[in-house]
Design a protein around this nucleic acid. Structure first.
Lengths: 118, 118
DNA sequence: CATTATGGTTCGAATTTCAAACTTAGAGCT
DNA sequence: AGCTCTAAGTTTGAAATTCGAACCATAATG
């Protein structure tokens, strides 16, 4: 980067450090291909809950090993989760579990076929 | 990592290198906070299209600067995109544009409030 | 039983990391 | 204008890391 921008390596380091401190850079991550490690089913699931059970459902979902990402949303769905499964059986089982979960009113699963842009 | 697993640093390097070669590690990324750089509206948008216009819509969306991620899916929606906007005005404008786009039959936007797990 | 593949280790030179001290240059005051 | 403060760069050198090459050890295989 330093070479690219024509400044010293230290200057770049200071800027990056600052981006970390002020929170622009939240973290450094590794993009892993779920299929390559046996997770053939990558899904995005929209969930709606009864308003008073919202936090409860969220707290219940968060620690689940299948749940790779979780965000609260407004609009089409109240919660959106990305989940990885070894196979479609596990996927179906999980969806059924969600539908039965206390406070959940709607479950809208989408199976991700291909990530065209990341 | 080497210290953690009690092997040499070179051993770890070789394993990581191998993970890169076989594609388990797709890439190294930086997780940036959109709000911190002026993108106050982070959204997840589900899109449905007429089957014959599917590829066409996808190719049109992919290069758009607002589109941070794009994946093809089956189930709840045919396409799922994550988009960043500076403000809700830009967001609304984009949604209207999508709705008018040739071949698009349905647009389901969700505004991400908080990423609880990444 | 010899051979190959796999997964380690050792070693050292080259490169990178990183903090401390120092230098601008501009912005905001009086 | 003169002064001070701050943001952003540079220099420098010691410490740490990177990384290839050469070299084991072991298990699986023809």
């Amino acid at each position: 980067m330093a070479r690219h921008f024509g400044v010293t390596e230290t200057a770049v380091r200071k800027r990056v450090k600052n981006l970390e401190v002020i929170g622009v850079i939240k973290k450094y991550t590794i993009d892993v291909d779920p299929k390559k490690i046996g997770f053939d089913v990558d899904t995005l699931i929209g969930i709606d809950t009864m308003p008073e059970k919202y936090i409860h459902v969220m707290e219940k979902l968060r620690p689940m090993k299948e749940v790779m990402r979780l965000c609260s949303a407004s609009g089409d769905h109240m919660l959106m989760i990305e989940c990885w499964f070894q196979n479609s059986r596990d996927f179906t089982k999980f969806i059924k579990m969600l539908e039965k979960m206390d406070g959940v009113t709607k479950v809208c699963p989408a199976i991700i076929n291909e990530k065209m842009k990341c």
